Computed example of a mutant assay.
Amino acid sequence: MANGFEEAGRVEPVRIKGTDGTHVGGNFYEQIGGSATFEKLANKFYEGIAGDEVLRPMYPDGDLAPAARRMQLFLEQYWGGPTTYQEERGHPRLRMRHNPYKINPDARDRWLNHMRVAVASLSLPQLQEAELWGYLERAATSMLNTYED
């Protein structure tokens, strides 16, 4: 299993049931505010990308809105929200989709810097922010495909 997905399909989040059999606490997607939170995260992130001289060229389209939507949908699905990403684009295959781009430590660090600003803009509780940030750091590092400048 990689990035919350198995070869055969989507892995469902663990849901805790109360003594009456109903789900309690929600999943991470629900806990942090659902679609609106992930939309805010993606939009804030791409505001930073728009002015980044290293990362912006990786998005040849003039409009970053489609990239922001893809990120939003991917993160929503990963964290237990709707499966729209997979329905529209299939399995995420993140490394394959990013392989055409030179992702070195500088690109990763820039990506993380923009993402840090975006995550901070959400004002999440500390535990939830740490869980989200931990995943994003691991995901960014897993995209490295070169150590050349």
Rank of each mutant, 00 (worst) to 15 (best):
R10P: 14
V11R: 13
E12K: 02
E12I: 00
V14M: 00
R15C: 10
R15M: 12
K17C: 14
G18V: 01
G18F: 00
T19I: 00
D20H: 12
T22Q: 12
H23C: 08
G25C: 11
G25A: 06
G25M: 08
N27I: 02
N27L: 00
F28E: 12
F28M: 09
E30S: 04
Q31S: 04
Q31P: 07
Q31K: 10
G33S: 11
G33T: 09
G33V: 07
T37D: 00
T37F: 00
F38C: 02
F38Q: 04
K40D: 02
L41D: 11
A42R: 13
N43D: 15
N43T: 13
K44C: 00
K44M: 06
K44F: 00
K44D: 09
E47I: 11
G48V: 05
G48P: 11
I49V: 08
A50P: 00
G51F: 01
D52M: 10
E53Y: 12
E53F: 14
V54I: 11
V54E: 08
L55E: 03
L55C: 06
R56N: 10
M58T: 07
D63I: 04
L64N: 05
L64H: 12
P66R: 10
P66C: 06
P66M: 08
A67N: 09
A67T: 13
A68P: 01
A68F: 12
R69E: 14
R70V: 13
M71R: 15
Q72M: 13
L73V: 12
F74A: 03
F74Q: 11
L75N: 10
Q77C: 06
Q77E: 14
Y78D: 08
G80T: 03
G80N: 01
G80P: 00
T83P: 05
T84S: 12
T84G: 02
Y85H: 12
E87M: 13
E88H: 13
E88C: 02
E88L: 09
R89D: 09
L94F: 09
L94T: 07
L94E: 06
R95E: 06
R95Y: 06
M96F: 04
R97N: 03
N99W: 01
Y101F: 13
I103C: 08
P105D: 08
D106E: 15
R108Y: 05
R110T: 09
W111Y: 10
L112A: 04
